[in-house]
Simulated scan of single mutants.
Amino acid sequence: MKKFGLAIQTMTRLPLKKQFDVTCQDYADSVAWFPATSLMAGAVMLAVYQLILLTGIPYLPAFLCVMAGIMFTGGLHIDGFADVCDAFFAGKTKERTLEILKDSRMGTYGVLGIVFIVVAKTFLIADLNPDRVLWVLLATPLCGKIPLVFCAKLSRYPRQDGMAKCIIENLKIDTALIAIIICSVAVFLVGGFAAGSIAVACMIAIGAVMYFISEKKIDGATGDVLGACNELGEIVFLLVMAVML
């Protein structure tokens, strides 16, 4: 259960206080538990959506369930997306791009990125088939892990240190496959064969595209890049489900 605890500590803001004696390989192996923590995030989003739905106010359930998902993860993924927007649009050299990625301050592109994510998710969730929306919400965080894990497995880490270094440099192919397969099964269960196939294909494409872009920009991927993969994956998954279900 140590690796499950590491996954909870890494991917959520649940107050798990137990200290573990861990290695970099343990962090990488905890990726196999990312689907479980993603399911927890989906359950939180679903619960908030159901509760606020009782108010009958349009778009409010969708908006607040998006915010609940962000709060549950401590804004980990959306912060990464914002940092990538700032760095990849404003950074002209590898050194400058990495410097912006490490800077805790947020620029204009980052703010616009956050607004885009929140608004897009809110409108897409509000447009989902009412008979399937609860299952889609449950699966959305899992779907976002497919491009994240895929990109992590392809990439190298461009810095000497960093939170994601252990995962990117030590992720085993069998661990990556376990996470991707579990998340893909969830997508197929929710979307069926047609929508599920398109969604999974899009997730793999997002992971590959982000790998190539970040490889060109910074000679590898950072935790922020993986967070951006997650957010883009969730957006595209919701889009596919809104169109096809």
Rank of each mutant, 00 (worst) to 15 (best):
M106C: 13
D79Q: 08
P130C: 03
L124M: 08
A32Y: 04
P35L: 02
S38P: 00
Q25L: 14
V66H: 04
L245D: 05
F20A: 01
F88N: 06
L142P: 06
N129L: 08
A208D: 09
P158Q: 04
A242T: 12
L238Y: 07
L98Y: 04
I146M: 00
A36H: 11
V119S: 11
A120E: 03
A120C: 13
N170V: 07
T12P: 03
A164T: 05
M244Y: 11
R96L: 11
P130I: 06
I100A: 02
I213T: 06
T140F: 05
A32L: 12
L232M: 14
P158R: 03
G91Q: 08
G69F: 02
D26C: 10
G220K: 05
K3N: 15
C85M: 14
D29M: 03
D127H: 12
F34T: 10
Y157T: 01
D21G: 08
G80V: 02
A139C: 15
L189G: 09
T97V: 06
P158D: 01
Q25F: 13
M71I: 14
F63S: 03
F212G: 05
V119H: 04
A82S: 13
A126E: 10
V84Y: 02
G220C: 07
I167E: 01
T10W: 13
C229W: 02
V22I: 14
A90V: 13
Q25R: 15
M210R: 03
M163Q: 12
R132T: 10
V115I: 15
I57R: 05
V66F: 07
A228T: 03
A195H: 00
L64I: 09
K102W: 08
L112F: 14
K172E: 15
A221Q: 10
T55D: 01
G207M: 08
M1K: 12
P130M: 04
Y27H: 13
T93S: 14
S197L: 14
F116T: 11
V31Q: 00
I173Y: 15
L98R: 00
T175D: 10
E231V: 02
L239W: 15
A68P: 03
A120T: 15
I181L: 14
L171M: 09
F4E: 07
L134I: 09
G192I: 05
M11E: 13
A82C: 14
I52D: 05
A176P: 03
C151H: 07
R96Y: 11
K18I: 15
V133C: 08
Y49P: 09
L51H: 10
R159S: 10
K3P: 04
R132M: 12
L14M: 15
K145T: 12
L101A: 08
A195P: 08
I168H: 02
T122G: 09
A199C: 12
I167W: 05
M11D: 11
V236S: 09
D174L: 12
S184D: 09
L128A: 04
G220Y: 08
K2Y: 07
I206N: 06
C166V: 07
L154F: 10
F72Y: 10
V115E: 05
L154A: 08
Y49R: 09
A32E: 11
A120M: 15
T108R: 09
V190M: 03
I125C: 09
L39P: 04
A32S: 15
I100D: 09
V31G: 04
G144I: 01
G220V: 00
L98G: 01
Y157R: 00
L60E: 08
A82Y: 00
G56T: 03
Y59K: 12
D21T: 13
V136W: 00
F81Q: 08
G162F: 07
